[in-house]
Simulated assay, not measured.
Amino acid sequence: MEPERSGCMVAVVGPSGAGKDTLMAYAARFFEGRDDIVFVRRIITRDAAAGGEDHDGVSEAEFAALEKTDRFAVSWGAHGLRYGIPVETKQAVAKGRLVVANGSRSALARFKDVYPSLVVINITASLDVLAARLEARGRETREEILRRLERSSLAVTGDYQVMTIDNSGSLEDAGRALVDALNGCFTSHQIS
């Protein structure tokens, strides 16, 4: 007898500078051409050409209209921006797919409400590595960055299935760890 198909949402979270986007792009290249895994393109109130994450940029008014018409499975605000996960992701999980989205620790309760089969992958890095990466962006001084990082927790709290990947070293090592974690989701959720 064939096991029942069960999809899963994977929310990739972590602090700024941890390398979430880079690692997700690495994994997306690894799984390219497979229809059993979906990498979500978020909708953000930031210009699509702003760099960083590949996303759909919308205005505040457009985001509000999308939210009002239930076009998001999950939406939240952080750092002066609004973020949305398209509602179609619920259908992908219902059809047995592994869906991978760049999430936020502050929105995990919303993710869990929408996707009961939720795995959280927490991408971290040492404070020195995070500070160096953020300093390279040129938006804050090193001292401001270190003060902010020391005030924040890098841990995920709550009743979630969490895997943590340290991205302080090479992209290849952390990228392979993310691929292995996602492959583990296929096994544990019997996704075929």
Rank of each mutant, 00 (worst) to 15 (best):
T69S: 07
V93E: 00
T89W: 02
R97K: 15
F39C: 02
I44N: 08
D47M: 08
A61P: 05
Y83A: 00
K95H: 07
T69F: 00
A49M: 10
D47E: 14
A64F: 04
T89N: 01
A78Q: 05
R41C: 06
E62P: 02
G84E: 06
V40W: 05
A94G: 10
A49Q: 14
G52M: 06
G96N: 04
I85D: 01
L66C: 07
E62N: 04
T69N: 00
T89M: 02
I85F: 07
D70T: 00
A48I: 09
A50P: 08
D70F: 00
G80E: 06
E67Q: 15
V93K: 03
E67H: 13
I44A: 07
Q91T: 10
W76D: 05
A50G: 14
A48H: 13
T45W: 14
I44Q: 09
G51L: 08
G96C: 04
P86H: 02
A73M: 02
D70P: 00
R82A: 13
D54E: 15
V40Q: 06
H79W: 11
W76A: 09
D56G: 10
T69K: 02
V38N: 05
L81I: 13
F63V: 03
A65N: 10
E88D: 13
D56H: 14
V38D: 01
D70M: 00
A64C: 08
I43D: 01
V74F: 01
D47G: 14
I37F: 11
H55R: 15
V93Y: 04
G51K: 12
L98K: 09
K68L: 09
S59Q: 07
K90H: 10
E60M: 09
K68Y: 02
G52K: 12
G51R: 11
E60I: 12
A78S: 10
R42A: 10
D47K: 15
D70Q: 01
Q91S: 12
E62A: 07
G52T: 11
S75W: 03
E60L: 13
V74W: 01
E67A: 15
P86D: 01
R41S: 09
A48Q: 14
E53Q: 11
I43K: 12
R42T: 07
A48F: 11
L98P: 09
D47I: 08
G77V: 09
